[in-house]
Nucleic acid binder design. Structure first.
Lengths: 347, 347
DNA sequence: ATGAAAGCGCTAACAG
DNA sequence: CTGTTAGCGCTTTCAT
């Protein structure tokens, strides 16, 4: 391994001079600079940034914690984060926790052991108390899944978004509306369920317990829920699901049963992942401003890095209903394409 | 920032003793150990791993370079990599290059500046010469997209896989078979195209240039290709696509046109991402052993880390054809579900 | 403009 | 069992 010392020796200067050249100090004569540069090239010397970071007490590395990489939902968010981070010359690295507390902890320790300068959680397993404690000493921001922890946060108003979606369903004339949610209660899940209930109550519609189905964020959950709902004496005419993956399962199962998603049963998804616009029929869903969510979250993180004692902020970004075929009563014109996902590339 | 010195002072011992306690040396009396542990707790001291890594000349951090996070294809691969890395107590971090050479370079420099111990490329932008050069001095492995660079590599036999798929189509009676590929030629793209041609030639079938469509890895490409193919005097009866995303677009466009994917036009995808089994109709595709690909790639990387001069290896793992509705001639039984994706969770 | 030297926080001999 | 000390590779005064 070539070190600064090797370069200094070879160039016949001191390590300090090499360091100055490396860091672009102007207090080096052009002749010396050239000679040093040549030797650096010759020895293909690369500085050990571990050391530089140590001296400067920063790594310029930011961590993004994802529960999983398989969800297309995160793609735009991460892009927004990266764009913002790059402006301040920070690198981002994605850590996948698989919703495993130990894995999460191991990545968090990268922060507390100074291997990274900050973390954005897209979801976290640790409890509020633990997160709050870390957030008091290290830059941390929550994005999309915001708990009661004392951190800066960015998300949409999930309650309001669900409320809007269900109200939309009601305005379409639906009165028996089911909900398919997850057993595991993420903050967004809780809020979306609350929005569902609020919309139902405000329109004096009963929330029938048999119309409430729970599972995981999977299309299998959607398929099973569909079966369960269809088996009821009086099935719902519409279903609000808290995730596109579940909605897709619902739609698929309806198709298998020979039913028409939309006319026979309206289906609402959530998140506007690409599959929602891709599916046939296309699926009505709630879109989040993903890129902006990421960009904003990173902005807050950078602020925390500059000043750890800056006050915590909570930002809510606007959501949008994307109406497509799965909530469409009349499907004679089956060629109608819903709004397209903003992103073309899948790889 | 609390340092080992603070702890030593407070505990009335030397820094060496604190270091010993931290590293679990047994040459510390139980009394001292307890006292030190207490102070560590009291001061909530966290060692600066930057320094420890510096001393040990390792970071125990491995980089995985992805062109994009949005492709569901990578999920299982990364999981396999992680599982293998964990066995040797290495952390993995995912770097998203967006297929941008500069971004890629900035992450590679993490390796050459010793901020990471190795890299697995799931795709790379740099040319073979550059990659080979880096690989000579630093642990690097290519996975799935293997170029001519001098590195260890793991992938499936893309040529053979495409050959098998197209041969399957031919065995189904198809003679006019189209191919939809990408303009950008990844190694896998080149091999899949070669496999397509080989199968056609070996069965004495002409490769009609008008039946060759090129675009990006997007469903829009599939939709457009479908239109172009349908506009032909004699459209193909089957289409081999080099990616599920493209296949989905094909299928969707067929549905929009009121045609039946399968009976009216057979569609072959590639990769077996979840959407292939999810779509209605489900899509026939080539499955790769994703988890194993990742696990194996990481295994090779770890070997390189232990001994940088270990010989480069190239491993080919077996692929599998997953037959579903989109290549099914008779679809009277539309409830038939194709093989399911191995993974249930989407988040 | 350049060099010598003092650390950054920690580990690992080497003494005792 | 414990302390002292010499670095790890680099940056940054402080002299010259």
């Amino acid at each position: 391994m070539t070190t600064i010392k090797d370069v200094a020796q070879r160039a016949g200067v001191s390590v300090a001079t090499v360091s100055r050249v490396m860091n672009g100090s102007n207090k080096v004569s052009e002749t010396t600079r050239q000679r040093v540069l040549e030797v650096i090239e010759e020895l293909s010397y690369r500085p050990n940034l571990l050391v530089r970071n140590l001296r400067k007490a920063e790594t310029r590395k930011l961590l993004i914690m994802l529960p999983s990489i398989s969800n297309q939902f995160y793609s735009q968010i991460v892009r927004g984060m990266e764009d913002r981070a790059l402006l301040d010359r920070f690198n981002i690295m994605v850590c996948i926790t698989n919703s495993n507390p130990e894995t999460e902890q191991s990545y968090i320790s990268l922060l507390t052991t100074r291997l990274a300068d900050g973390i954005v959680f897209l979801s976290n397993e640790m409890d509020d108390e633990a997160i709050s404690q870390i957030a008091a000493a290290y830059p941390i921001v929550q994005c999309c899944e915001c708990t009661g922890a004392k951190t800066s946060k960015v998300s949409i108003d999930n309650r309001q978004a669900a409320y809007d979606a269900v109200s939309h369903l009601i305005s379409l004339g639906h009165r028996r509306i089911a909900m398919v949610s997850t057993e595991k209660k993420h903050p967004s899940t809780v809020d979306r369920e609350a929005g569902f209930r609020q919309a139902m109550e405000e329109h004096s519609l009963a929330v029938d317990d048999r119309l409430l189905q729970y599972g995981t964020y999977s299309f299998q959950t959607g398929m099973r829920a569909c079966e369960a709902l269809l088996a009821l004496d009086s099935p719902p005419s519409a279903v609000f699901t808290i995730a596109d993956s579940i909605a897709v399962g619902m739609v698929k199962q309806l198709l298998i049963r020979g039913l028409r998603p939309g006319p026979d049963m309206a289906v609402y998804g959530f998140d506007d992942t690409s599959i929602a616009s891709l599916y046939t029929p296309s699926i009505t869903t709630v879109a989040q401003p993903r890129y902006d969510l990421g960009y904003t979250a990173m902005d807050l993180l950078l602020r925390k890095i500059k000043e750890i004692d800056s006050p915590n902020q909570t930002l809510l970004l606007p959501h949008k209903l994307v109406i497509r075929e799965s909530t469409c009563g009349d499907q004679t014109d089956s060629t109608v394409l819903g709004g397209r996902s903003e992103q073309e590339e899948l790889v």
